[in-house]
Design a protein around this nucleic acid. Structure first.
Length: 436
RNA sequence: GGAGGGGUGGCAGAGCGGUUGAAUGCACUGGUCUUGAAAACCAGCGAAGGUGAAAGUCUUCCGAGAGUUCGAAUCUCUCCCCCUCCGCCA
């Protein structure tokens, strides 16, 4: 959520920034709504002050020895007209508030100044390429064909058990999948200083709203209705439960000793569930786009002045995984048109997939600045002002496990259909040098 | 699933219809004292918002929502969450 005060103070600046994202903000409508809001607020407060004073007066009269009924009678007439006015103003105010909130929730984050302008992914800015795509001396297969051998990667079983976009992995592939998780967790915990957390994979609406999945993107997630009518959601990413750790809290060493001091760095392995509504027909082959996949997620909660630096570092942590696995990748800065709703700035890491002869997204690292924190009500006590101020939140995949598995299978395939094991992964596979 | 207890400021914890936005303690900030620190003592210290040049002033907030009342942190109802005991269970 954007700062309402910013809209009041400089609506034209906000409109200009929204235009970078291809969104036309109706300045005139906002100004009208805002003027209306202000007028109603002032009137309501004045009426409430009058009502409070009248009630207090009755209390004083009674204390002064007047009979209760007598005291009430004295204020009755004024009381009645006040109540009527209050009711009417309240109703109007609620209506305006609703419209204002709706508008506010519909506005995405303001892109950072160095985010390239553009309409779609074709305007994304490539920042670097790492590694050389391998030239195979045979026809490189994609992961579906590779995994087909011995039924190690079985999409038909997945759809029998559940439906399309689900998979069953067996033996070496299942083990490779698990090894990747452990490898990434160990790297981030031991080398990059993240704290390991385990969290719920079902969350409530407050958590989904806090990180921005609701209300706008409800159709992207799976929801579960419970008997009592409360609604839970299967997490679309660990970002949701992990970032919500700091919802409604003030982070400071003395106040919340359990949480610790900023920066908070969490790493969390979790399954992710996505409905993928609207992507029918896209990536239907293989496990690039599944309803259920695993991810090792990096989340940082930092001081506002430190978030750009933290964003670079976090992205570097994700890159390190690819480098250690010796997977060729490129790093792009998403343009304004491709930037996620809540993000101020995002780097995507795209891994080379020989089966597709293309770079495909394997990690997305974003700085949300205070956009998520405002909704989450996540603050810290700034020692210089001694006041609670909003924190900055960041997250990134480090990495998506399913897609990493695909990348390893495809990049490390041999002519005979076996898969060589990247050196840094061997300790996690009992020292084995090849699979399948 | 059954039976109880409870949700109050950064934390702990009083208040249970009328200057209570809330005692007290801890923490925090400033000061006195001290060579310095600690201790002690004094003072300040919740959040969000409106208005104002500022001092100030007004509104809202005691888990959430609805109700009773002239007036609610305090009474009633619904929901959410936490704790204890019993049952069941990986």
């Amino acid at each position: 959520m954007l700062d309402e005060k910013l809209l009041r103070r400089d609506i034209h600046h906000v409109a200009e920034q929204m235009r970078r994202r291809g969104i036309e903000l109706d300045v005139v409508a906002f100004n009208e709504l805002e003027a209306h809001r202000k007028d109603l607020d002032i009137r309501l407060q004045a009426l409430q002050a009058e009502r409070n004073a009248a009630a207090k007066k009755i209390g004083e009269l009674i204390k002064g020895g007047m009979a209760v009924e007598e005291a009430k009678k004295q204020q009755a007439e004024q009381q009645k007209s006040l109540e009527q006015q209050l009711e009417s103003v309240k109703k109007q105010q609620a209506d305006v508030r609703l419209q204002l909130d709706e508008l506010l929730l519909s506005l995405p984050n303001i892109p950072a100044s160095d985010v390239p302008d553009g309409d779609d992914e074709s305007a994304n800015l490539e920042l670097l390429r790492w590694g050389q795509p391998k030239n195979f001396e045979f026809a490189a297969k994609d992961h579906v064909d590779l995994g087909e051998r011995n039924g190690l990667l079985d999409f038909e079983l997945g759809s029998k058990i559940t439906g399309s976009r689900f998979v069953v992995m067996r033996r070496d592939v299942a083990r490779l999948h698990r090894a990747l998780i452990q490898f990434m967790l160990d790297l981030h915990i031991n080398e990059h200083g993240y704290e390991e957390v385990y969290v719920p994979f079902m969350v409530n609406t407050a958590s989904m709203t806090g990180t921005g999945q609701l209300p706008k993107f409800a159709e992207d997630s799976f929801s579960l209705a419970t008997d009592s009518g409360t609604e839970f959601y299967l997490i679309p990413t660990a970002e949701v439960p992990v970032t919500n750790i700091v919802r409604d809290t003030i982070i400071a060493s003395q106040d919340n000793p359990d949480l610790g001091e900023l920066p908070l760095r969490f790493v969390c392995h979790s399954p992710c569930f996505r409905s993928e509504a609207g992507s029918y027909g896209r990536d239907t082959r293989g496990m690039i786009r599944q309803h259920q996949f695993e991810k090792v997620e990096l989340v940082q909660i930092v001081r506002p002045d430190e978030s750009p630096q933290a964003h670079e570092e976090l992205t570097g942590h994700a890159e390190k995984v690819l480098q250690l696995l010796e997977l060729p990748y490129r790093k792009v800065s998403l343009c304004t048109g491709d930037l996620g709703f809540s993000a101020q700035k995002t780097y995507d890491l795209e891994v080379w997939l020989p089966g597709q002869q293309a770079y495909r997204e394997i990690s997305s690292c974003s700085n949300f600045a205070d956009y998520q924190a405002r909704r989450l009500h996540a603050r810290w006590r700034n020692p210089t002002s001694n006041k609670p101020e909003l924190v900055h939140t960041l997250n990134g995949s480090g990495l998506a496990i399913g897609r990493t598995l695909v990348a390893v299978l495809e990049n490390y395939q041999n002519a005979d259909g076996t898969i060589s094991v990247p050196e840094s992964l061997r300790p996690y596979l009992g020292g084995r040098e090849s699979l399948l």
